[in-house]
Write a protein that binds this DNA or RNA. Sequence first.
DNA 1: GTTGTAAGATAGTGCCGGTATCCACCTCTC
DNA 2: GAGAGGTGGATACCGGCACTATCTTACAAC
Lengths: 214, 214
Amino acid sequence: MLVSELAERADVPLATVKYYLREGLLPAGETTGPRRAEYDDEHLRRLRVLRLLREVGGVPVTSLRQVADALDDESLAVHDVMTVIADVITAVPTIASDSGSLEMVDQVLAAVGWDGVRPESTDRLRLAELVSLLEGPGSIGPDVDVLLFYAGLADQLARAEVARVDDSTERSLLLEQMITGTVVYGRVFELMRQLGHEHHHRVRMDRTTPVVAR
Amino acid sequence: MLVSELAERADVPLATVKYYLREGLLPAGETTGPRRAEYDDEHLRRLRVLRLLREVGGVPVTSLRQVADALDDESLAVHDVMTVIADVITAVPTIASDSGSLEMVDQVLAAVGWDGVRPESTDRLRLAELVSLLEGPGSIGPDVDVLLFYAGLADQLARAEVARVDDSTERSLLLEQMITGTVVYGRVFELMRQLGHEHHHRVRMDRTTPVVAR
DNA sequence: GTTGTAAGATAGTGCCGGTATCCACCTCTC
DNA sequence: GAGAGGTGGATACCGGCACTATCTTACAAC
């Protein structure tokens, strides 16, 4: 297919596809002439994944390059590509964190037995930042028990999600499915949590406050 | 305290505080003279909450105005303010959703018994959008059972979080704590999920692929 | 041939979230 | 009571980001 068709099939403006090509996020098509190039399904899938990361995951375009590079690097194991994705999804301006918070995080990680986490993981560092944020005056202090509760649930979630991947799938397809899953289901869970708040909150209100009219 | 002190204590640039005042996100201080105004702890807490929503929650400044208005409106019950917060946190450009997806979402909501969710909830609508996104060709189709699994975990989380709020606290303080909790612990859980992926992923790799060197 | 569209390069746009500057004036210190 | 420095208030400006528009050259299908 030609660029225009690629753009149309992915439902992305042509100008944007050209921009991504310029930025090297999308591998160039196979040149079939001085002013002609062919694109295939692989390009289409790549484009879809990038847009998903961008639009649903909120990943900035500059970080997408890291993603593209990792996907293109055949020497990287699927697992290693996913750590790149993990780091990139976690792109929020840095806050200061103290060593005590990091210690607390590590304590929690140890408690749930997550020894497979890289010490340089962005997620681990960001988590410590958040914990130190909670330590500020007048806020709900971070409690190891509370964090452990979260970690326990997250463990169930992550365990089930990892178990759901089918390693017999071809590398590039597998990666795309995993990325989509991470991003989209992450958002799904987030939304469900908020819906849960809304429900349980209302239930509690109805029980607590006297109902005036119904 | 004077503005400069307010800015310093919240660790926000003075120019930004002035900007927030201009935008009406922060109520004006009490004027004590033609070129003098006093700010109190309430202002400080408000500022901190706004910055948290902005920096950790990624809420755009325009939406912060809705938050500020809701917080200032004493006629709104705590619960109603929280629905405003819920809608505002869920600020991602819209994707098209089909009616089938919405039906699926409602089916899941009914299954977990969340009848306290407003039909117009932004979260409910966004969830339907995501579900229809998953329905696209070549992706991991949305499965009611999978969604139910997420909903079940989210229910545990939301239930525990709502149970943790102490209604005897003064309204404005309570709201601030709840907002902080929603935003920060949401992010905490997200990070923990990713850390869980990293760990379980590595474990699975180590088991699956023959270890060459150690 | 004529027309339409491709590729490729370069320049421009719109929004967002602040910053910077200016001014008239107040207040604190010495 | 004089001077330094900070204040509230207004307006103008800025940098980054993610595109978007335009232009040129050339080929391809009719």
